[in-house]
Computed example of a mutant assay.
Amino acid sequence: MTDGGTAFQPGQAEPSLPYRSRGAYAGHDALGAGAGAVLLDPEVAHDLRSAAEFATQERRITGGLLYGRAWMDDEGPYLVVDGYLESGPGENPGDRVIRDGQDNFTLTDADLRLLRQDAARMYSSALEVGWWRTLPAPGGFNPRDYLTQQDLIQPGGIGLVVFGSGLEWGAAYLGPDARPPGPLIPAPRPASHAGPAYDTDIAAEPGPEPVDIAAGESLLTPDDELDADLEPEPVTGTVVATRLPALTPAPQRASRPVISPVPADDWRARPASPGNIGPRIPTDVKIVVGALVVVSCAVAAIIGVLLSSAMIAVIVAVIALLAITIFVSVTRL
């Protein structure tokens, strides 16, 4: 602790420390117990963890100074941390994780000067009680951190290492010789979502005894104890009974077969490509084709007469008819 911060030695009575029972900080997280314990404000612990996680995502290290007060009670002196300041990101040349999680982070003189200027405005009634830094994963002080602890921390001060990943929150070191005060003991937190409120009288009542129906037990009162003129009272509460498995009978076939209304002939397989499927020849096309056939035959006859050969006439007529047939067949496709 520096800049006029009150220092104290754990385990020794210091008359300069004001008296306040640590019970006033019952909601604080505890590092250690008895003389030299450190009580950490839960909001500060949460903010430090968030800063560590954010810095880890950016592959850098962050840190700063801690602020609070030193007190005395019947168990001895203890430290309360209820404030912190963080050095600006990117202002420290050694804040980058270089390899294998190693780094060269330290609080430079420029960092300390800016932090203490801010503390004069924000924590004017508090004392500088320690420093903190982050690690990407659970670990501890490196040799450079021990030198920083010796330079910044007086007896009773604290250095914190806050982890940016894992289930553990961090580690603490007391005094310039960096003694571990003990593990972080979180204070009990009230449940954020309270469950349904139950009536204690109802919950205290014993439940109904189980009834084994398969063994012949009954939920009804014997007939000789019932009043014939009055209906039996309904059963209240929860009744636990053993139920026999209900077996569903297998479906039975109908006595008479159902006759389908669709004729049997309609279920026969039909040809996939019946012959009547396709475009029909229009009437005007038929007239034109017929005219062509007549003209072809006439031309063949004229050629036969001119050449005085019936054979040539027949050949011409056959070729003309074949040409007309092929043309009509192609146009139907």
Rank of each mutant, 00 (worst) to 15 (best):
L307T: 10
G304P: 06
P234H: 05
R268F: 10
R144H: 12
V162P: 01
Y67C: 00
L167N: 11
R99C: 02
A264T: 13
I281D: 02
A30D: 06
A272N: 03
P282F: 02
Y146G: 01
G237S: 04
V81S: 01
P143H: 07
A264K: 08
R179W: 02
P196F: 12
G36C: 04
D223R: 14
A137P: 00
V129K: 00
G11E: 05
G207Y: 07
A254E: 12
H193D: 08
R116T: 11
R96S: 12
R96G: 05
F141A: 08
Q154G: 13
P186R: 12
A45T: 02
L174F: 00
Q252V: 12
I277C: 02
G4W: 10
I324K: 01
D265W: 09
V258I: 08
H46W: 11
F327G: 15
Q102H: 05
L40V: 12
A35Q: 09
A269N: 10
G32S: 11
H28Y: 15
G27I: 00
L39E: 01
G156L: 03
M311S: 03
V299H: 05
L152R: 07
G170C: 06
I319W: 10
F163R: 00
N276F: 12
Q150F: 07
A30K: 12
I259S: 11
V293N: 05
E225M: 08
L333G: 06
A51T: 06
P190S: 08
A254G: 15
A120C: 04
L292R: 11
L220I: 06
E231Q: 11
R96N: 08
L247W: 08
T331F: 03
Y123L: 04
F141R: 06
D111V: 09
Q117E: 15
T62Q: 04
S260W: 01
L48A: 07
S255K: 07
S87P: 00
